[in-house]
Design a protein around this nucleic acid. Structure first.
Length: 425
DNA sequence: TCTGGGGTCCTAGGACCC
DNA sequence: TCTGGGGTCCTAGGACCC
C-alpha cells in the first residue's frame, strides 16, 4: 500500500501559522507579480473564487468579502515543507517528496488493520508539531492514494481505499469522484470524457482498456489501470537527476530599454548557473526566452538557444551567452513583459567532454570552477549576490516582480522573526 | 491595463542513415 | 501503371502535474 500526505490549502495554512487571527477568515495567496490566485482557504473557495484566476478579475469579490491577500512567500513555504518532511521520515522508510506540499510514502509491510490508526496518528502529529492540517489517503497505488487523500479532506480523517477488502467503499468513492479530480486527467481530457457521458471515476474505470488507449494514449491506460487497482507507478524515493531547468520572471512593469533587460537576463543566467552547480550538473544547450508586445498590441513569445562548445555551469559564461542572444533578439519597438533563461540537456558536471576549439583551455576551466566555488561559498555566507557579475547591476532592479503583500520570512531571517507583545515579565 | 514559475512525458513529423 | 523497409535523432507542440 501507498500513502499520500497532502497539506490542506498549503500556502494559506503557512500564512495562518503566524497569523492565528486569520483562522476561519477568507485568505488567498497570489502568484509571483501578484498575478493570479494560487491558493485559497475553504472560505474563499465557498465564495466561488476559482483557482488560477487573475487577481484583477476578482478585486470586487475581495473587497466585498474582506478577503486577506498575500504575495507568495517561498522562503516561508519551503521551510515549513522541510519541517513536515522531517516528521514524515519518522513514519515510513521510503518517502517520495512529490511537491512542496505532498509526499508519497511506502507502506508495503504494514498490516492492513493498522493503516487507519497510522494515518490518523500522522495527521495529529503534523497538526500538533507544525500546526499544518494534512489529509492522508491510503491505497494500493498512487492514483487511488491521491483520490483517497482528496476524499479524506471531506471526511476529516484519513481515508483508505482497498478494492480487495472493502469493495463497496471503493466503488462508492470512485462514484463520488468527478473525472476532473483524477490524477492524470486534465482539462482537455476531462472535457472529452464528459462529452461522451463519462462523468465520474467509476464510469472511467468501467470502459475497456483498448478504448482508453485509443482515446488517451498510453497515459490514459495508466490512469485506467490504476483506477482498477493495479499498480503502474512505483515510489521514487531517489529522484533521477533533473533534465532541464528554467529561471524566468514576469516584470513588475513593461521594459523597453536594452540595458534594463540585460540586467534582468544576467540575473536569471546567474541563478541558473548557481542551480546547476548546486546539483553538480552542467548544460550544453542554453538559451533565453522573451515575452513581449509589438506596437500593434500583439503578444509574442520568443526563444533563442545556442549549443555551447563545452558543457558548462560557469556563471560568467552563461551570462555572456545570454547577453549575446539578447542583443541579437532585442528590438526597441517592443514592450518586454517577461524574460527567462533555460537549460536543456543537463549532464553530470563530473563528465568532461573537452573541445579542441574551446576558447578556454582546460587549465583555465579548472580555475574557473574554483572561482565559482569560492563565489558560491562567499554568497552563502554573506548573502545572495554579495559577489556577482558586473552586468547584473544590482542598483537597477526595476524589473523585479511586484510583491506588495508579502508576509515576513518568519522562520528563515533573524531580522524578520515574529515579535511577541503584551506579555508581562 | 491588468494572467506564475517551475517541471515531466508523449506524439508527430522531418531529416537522416543503411 | 506500378518506386522498400527498416532504423535513429531532433524539434515543436501539447497534455499533464504542482
Amino acid at each position: 500500500m501507498f500513502a499520500l500526505v497532502d497539506c490542506n490549502n498549503f500556502f494559506v495554512s503557512c500564512e495562518r501559522l503566524f497569523r492565528p487571527d486569520l483562522t476561519n477568515q477568507p485568505v488567498l495567496v497570489l502568484s509571483n507579480n501578484d498575478g493570479c490566485v494560487v491558493a485559497r482557504s475553504q472560505e474563499v473557495r465557498e465564495l466561488g473564487v476559482p483557482m488560477g484566476v487573475p487577481y484583477f478579475q476578482i478585486k470586487d469579490v475581495v473587497r466585498r468579502n474582506n478577503i486577506q491577500c498575500f504575495s507568495s512567500n517561498f522562503a516561508l513555504y519551503s521551510d515549513i515543507s522541510q519541517r513536515i518532511i522531517s516528521i514524515l521520515g519518522q513514519y515510513a522508510a521510503d518517502i517520495e517528496v512529490y511537491s512542496i506540499d505532498e509526499a508519497f510514502m511506502d507502506l508495503a509491510n504494514m498490516p492492513i488493520e493498522n493503516l487507519q490508526s497510522w494515518g490518523d496518528d500522522l495527521t495529529r502529529r503534523v497538526q500538533r508539531d507544525i500546526g499544518m492540517p494534512v489529509s492522508v489517503g491510503i491505497a494500493p497505488n498512487k492514483t487511488l492514494a491521491k483520490l483517497a487523500s482528496h476524499y479524506a479532506k471531506k471526511q476529516s480523517k484519513s481515508c483508505i481505499i482497498d478494492p480487495s477488502s472493502n469493495h463497496a467503499n471503493y466503488t462508492k468513492i470512485l462514484e463520488d469522484t468527478d473525472v476532473d479530480d483524477i490524477w492524470g486527467v486534465g482539462r482537455s481530457n476531462s472535457a472529452r470524457l464528459k462529452s461522451v457521458g463519462i462523468k465520474n471515476a467509476l464510469q472511467l474505470s468501467g470502459v475497456s482498456e483498448s478504448w482508453a488507449h485509443q482515446v488517451f494514449g498510453v497515459n490514459g491506460v495508466r490512469v485506467y489501470s490504476e483506477l482498477n487497482g493495479k499498480q503502474v507507478y512505483s515510489l521514487e524515493a531517489h529522484k533521477p537527476p533533473q533534465k532541464s531547468l528554467m529561471v524566468s520572471r514576469s516584470f513588475g512593469h513593461t521594459i523597453n530599454n536594452l540595458y534594463e533587460l540585460e540586467t534582468a537576463v544576467v540575473n536569471f543566467a546567474s541563478r541558473a548557473g548557481y542551480k546547476l552547480r548546486r546539483s553538480n550538473q552542467q548544460v550544453s544547450d542554453f538559451g533565453i526566452y522573451l515575452r513581449f508586445k509589438t506596437p500593434d498590441g500583439e503578444t509574442h513569445n520568443q526563444m533563442l538557444s545556442a549549443k555551447l562548445s563545452v558543457a558548462s555551469n560557469d556563471t560568467p559564461e552563461l551570462a555572456g551567452e545570454s547577453l549575446r542572444l539578447l542583443r541579437e533578439a532585442f528590438s526597441p519597438d517592443y514592450g518586454y513583459k517577461k524574460a527567462g533563461v533555460f537549460a536543456n540537456n543537463l549532464t553530470s558536471a563530473n563528465l568532461c567532454q573537452v573541445n579542441l576549439l574551446d576558447k578556454l583551455s582546460p587549465k583555465i576551466r579548472q580555475k574557473r570552477t574554483k572561482l565559482m566555488e569560492a563565489m558560491d561559498n562567499i554568497n552563502q555566507k554573506y548573502g545572495n549576490d554579495t559577489i556577482h557579475v558586473g552586468a547584473m547591476d544590482t542598483t537597477k532592479n526595476s524589473w523585479h516582480s511586484q510583491k506588495k503583500r508579502i508576509s515576513p520570512a518568519y522562520t528563515t531571517d533573524w531580522l524578520q522573526l515574529p515579535k511577541v507583545s503584551g506579555l508581562k515579565d
